[in-house]
């Protein structure tokens, strides 16, 4: 029995605000960010939380008492209402088959609406969003998604080759978002003494700052500490550190830079 209790559950948190979806409506960006996110990624939860909530006249959008039959701005449309509005405008005779269509396209509603727009024409506006400043809501969702995907791809292009092999693991998703870049800088502490700053080791996948600092201190036989994501090594080891980062931590040479008086000079070149 205790096995069932102690197995961790994965909890869904809003991609826009990070709260559990049921608490999203108290946040400032609920209508602009959370609703579109929830609608596109978890339509079932959206329907359960806000479809019902609105029917019962509770929280969503502060709509209050208006019943679910009147489409007037009580809250954003559910997927079903959106589809009903679409068919109502272009093909009223198909209205009866909505449930079957919804079932068929469950989980890929985005595609359904894209196809419909292509076949019939622009989607009818959700009156809930219509009184806001910018209107066409459905398309907005899709555009937003595409935009994110583009950014993701661009990020991936930026990634350096050295890191790529390591990133197939569980942490791949998290790491993909940052591109690795390590900057090494010599700072003179005193006329004769210097310290070496290494910035950006936290962008290297699979390495803890503390462990890296420890490795540096071992290699250079001096103190090495972590301060606000920055590793400070006693002594002037600029070249050696760069070499070590490339050979030991497997960072690509293109991702290691020297900071010479504010100018970034790549290590490889």
């Amino acid at each position: 029995m205790s096995v069932t209790i102690t197995t961790p559950q994965s909890v869904i948190y809003c991609g826009a605000c990070g709260m559990p979806p049921e608490y999203c409506s108290y946040g400032p960006d609920f209508e602009t960010h959370c609703v579109p996110w929830l609608k596109s990624s978890h339509p079932d939860i959206f329907a359960r939380l806000h479809g019902i909530a609105r029917g019962a006249g509770i929280d969503a959008g502060g709509g209050g008492s208006s019943s679910s039959t009147s489409p007037a701005a009580a809250g954003p449309w559910t997927t079903r209402e959106r589809l009903a509005a679409f068919y109502g405008k272009y093909m009223p005779e198909k209205l009866d088959g909505i449930d079957a269509i919804l079932e068929k396209y469950e989980g890929k509603e985005d595609k359904l609406f894209l196809a419909l727009v292509r076949k019939y024409g622009p989607e009818p506006e959700d009156p809930y969003y219509a009184d806001g400043s910018d209107s066409d809501d459905g398309d907005d969702d899709e555009d937003g998604d595409d935009g994110e995907r583009d950014v993701g791809e661009r990020m991936r292009d930026l990634d350096v080759d050295g890191g790529k092999k390591k990133r197939r693991g569980a942490a791949a998703k998290k790491v993909n978002k940052v591109d690795t870049r390590v900057i090494i800088q010599k700072i003179s502490r005193n006329r004769k003494k210097a310290v070496t700053h290494v910035v950006g080791m936290d962008t290297v996948p699979g390495i803890k700052l503390k462990d890296a600092a420890k490795a540096f201190s071992k290699r250079f036989a001096g103190s090495s500490s972590v301060k606000e994501k920055e590793i400070i090594i006693q002594g002037d080891h600029v070249e050696d550190v760069a070499e070590m980062i490339v050979t030991k931590f497997g960072v690509s040479e293109d991702a290691v830079f020297f900071d010479l008086d504010g100018e970034f000079v790549p290590y490889g070149g």
Partner: peptide, 10 residues
């Protein structure tokens, strides 16, 4: 809270 959310049966 993240811990409590993870194990709702506790």
């Amino acid at each position: 809270l993240k811990f409590v959310h993870k194990y709702p049966k506790l």
